[in-house]
Design a protein around this nucleic acid. Sequence first.
DNA 1: CCTAAATCGGACTGAAATAGTCCGATATCC
DNA 2: GGATATCGGACTATTTCAGTCCGATTTAGG
Lengths: 160, 160
Amino acid sequence: MTTVLRITKQADYGLILLVRLAAEPGRVHPAADLATAAGLPLPMAGKILKRLAHEGLLESQRGAGGGYSLARDPATIDVAAIVTALDGPIALTDCLAHGPEECDHAAGCPTQGHWHRISQAIRQALEGVTLADLCRPAVPPLVRLDAIAVRTPAREAART
Amino acid sequence: MTTVLRITKQADYGLILLVRLAAEPGRVHPAADLATAAGLPLPMAGKILKRLAHEGLLESQRGAGGGYSLARDPATIDVAAIVTALDGPIALTDCLAHGPEECDHAAGCPTQGHWHRISQAIRQALEGVTLADLCRPAVPPLVRLDAIAVRTPAREAART
DNA sequence: CCTAAATCGGACTGAAATAGTCCGATATCC
DNA sequence: GGATATCGGACTATTTCAGTCCGATTTAGG
């Protein structure tokens, strides 16, 4: 038993790579540069960047002098979009990922409305933070008592 | 690529079993009864009930005529507690599960505060719904447009 | 052209988490 | 004593995740 309701490392890594890209939005960054900056092995970073480009969050330029750059303004890319791009749809259970009506028993299920509410709250939490937010300010935690540390292998190496 | 930010099936099953128990809070329910009611194989239901008892959410009585009953009032048991009991701590990434100070690089990490906020929002969403809520009323979804169906193998069988 | 620098697309492997089962031991009621 | 139950933990199979690798393709520059 480990932890639950988590995003994958790929999404975590992806966030870090995107923060790097957002630091210099105009420039084209080769995957190798981003990988070393983030402290990730090139194959891993490459895989993630590929997918982000495929999902439309990044633009890619092939060939010598090529690389990746942000497709949109950092302020218009929210965390939900990034996580969804890398990890797939966000849902508490598999069935919540399917569309409406998918469940013919919905009528008799008293829990339904509650799940919907919870699901929506989570989604909103992820939509409420943009890539621009992530870069710029370290928002001061309101509660100082239980300030929670943020650590991940990549994130450690990432901090220059 | 499937879905992300999900709870395990055990937690899902556990919720269903608990709803059954909450329907008749006073009574003692044998695992076999709960299993058939929920449409789960007995070993599976047994495993889950065992853990819920071990975590203090259920009380158990052994021997003939024994079974499980709620340890507390349904209104005092929230979804977060149930999920935590069955799936372990709730956190977006492994590092968020650890306590404070665990990250010596926190000072340089601009994303820190944001993660904390998101994490807290998710936790609150799960703490805001109690077992009593889940039983009683089907809260009407505010947004009708994208009414989301709730389905899971067990949940289908569960609906009497 | 030709070579070097890059991404593209997908297959592939190993490790870990999950789902689910099974069994022997123990407690309780009749 | 026998039937009914939970207890505790080991055990297996399946899926998911992390991470790697390779051949193909595109582009810049000499």
